[in-house]
Simulated assay, not measured.
Amino acid sequence: MPSETPYARLTPDLVLDAITACGLWPDGRLLALNSYENRVWQVGLEEARPVIAKFYRPGRWSDAAILEEHAFALELAAAELPVVAPMVFAERTLLHHDGFRYALSPRHGGRAPSLESADQLEWLGRLIARMHSVGARAAFAHRGNVDRDTLIAQPVRSVLASSLFPSSLHDRYRHVVGRIDRLVAARLEAVGPVRRLRLHGDCHPGNVLWTDAGPHFVDLDDARMGPAVQDLWMLAHDERAMEALLEGYASMRDFDHAELALIPALRAMRQVHYAGWIAARWHDPAFPAAFPFAAEPRWWEQHIIDLHEQADELE
């Protein structure tokens, strides 16, 4: 499958055929959901609730890494945590059809959480603590870590190799990402060793859906090993929000408050990674359509300015 168009053959008919291959009966209703790294569809079924079909990006994760994600989700669900886990067909969660790898899960709707609500933040804190208690039972062997290589070195290589990035900005970009990398390394050393555990990895508000029964977590596609604070900081828009999250968290599990000093480093690494992700995926037709601003030199100029501001915060 050509890497330039990884989903060129993923037609609606192929999606329906993949669902039928599992012994399910689609009714023809398909809804493409908002996903860029993978392709995700809501598929209507005859006389049953719709399912979510996730087709994995070719070449991103190994089969072993995807199966670790699935096993973690099933382990969390078995611990009665509100996590959407993959469906099992003939003892398999990772399915194959016509060259694509995919998984199915039940459809669970919901709305965004209210991050202004202390009650909701405490609730999320309790659930994340329980998730981390399960995550601390074992380690991932195939899914990598929240670290400088993954979130700085690799994305920087993608940016510098991309025709998307203006050559006139190379020196300025190299300077600022070098500064970020040194400061992140210094912050990690200053904080010292922290316990790493299996994480959701991308626990931002879009991956938490709220219903009248409470919240549930979706999309463990970025699950990795890392510090507990990685699953907290993206839900806290200010100190009061973090206090509410930690109040809930501490009622279920101890939290090492030294990890709070990692937040500026994690924020800076995420910002570097975001630009590198766009650059690395620009060949996928979905990316120019979704991120047209990245084709403008002024966006990259602003990105460099933003990184300097992150570096200033780290200092």
Rank of each mutant, 00 (worst) to 15 (best):
166 P>Y: 07
115 L>A: 02
224 R>P: 03
72 F>E: 08
223 A>G: 08
43 V>W: 09
206 G>Q: 12
64 A>W: 00
175 H>K: 10
230 Q>M: 11
173 Y>S: 05
138 A>T: 15
187 R>G: 06
274 Y>M: 10
176 V>S: 05
123 W>F: 12
36 Y>C: 00
46 E>R: 14
111 R>K: 13
205 P>S: 10
287 F>V: 14
122 E>C: 12
242 M>V: 03
146 V>I: 15
249 Y>F: 14
309 E>Q: 14
19 I>P: 04
149 D>R: 10
176 V>L: 03
238 D>E: 11
150 T>A: 15
259 E>V: 04
171 D>P: 00
220 L>W: 12
279 A>D: 04
133 S>K: 14
313 E>N: 01
281 R>K: 10
89 F>M: 09
219 D>F: 08
135 G>Y: 07
206 G>T: 01
43 V>Q: 06
114 S>A: 12
14 L>M: 11
51 V>W: 08
12 P>C: 03
82 P>V: 00
315 E>Q: 13
295 A>R: 12
244 A>R: 09
274 Y>L: 11
261 A>M: 00
14 L>D: 05
238 D>L: 04
314 L>V: 06
36 Y>H: 13
178 G>Q: 06
217 F>S: 04
68 E>G: 11
192 G>D: 03
242 M>R: 14
33 L>V: 08
36 Y>T: 01
294 A>M: 13
37 E>I: 06
232 L>Y: 11
33 L>A: 11
151 L>S: 06
220 L>C: 09
178 G>F: 09
191 V>I: 10
235 L>S: 01
30 L>R: 06
9 R>P: 00
194 V>H: 02
234 M>I: 00
22 C>Q: 15
129 A>K: 12
5 T>Y: 09
154 Q>E: 14
56 Y>R: 06
110 G>V: 00
84 V>R: 07
165 F>T: 02
239 E>S: 15
91 E>V: 01
162 S>Q: 08
123 W>N: 13
239 E>C: 10
41 W>T: 03
146 V>C: 07
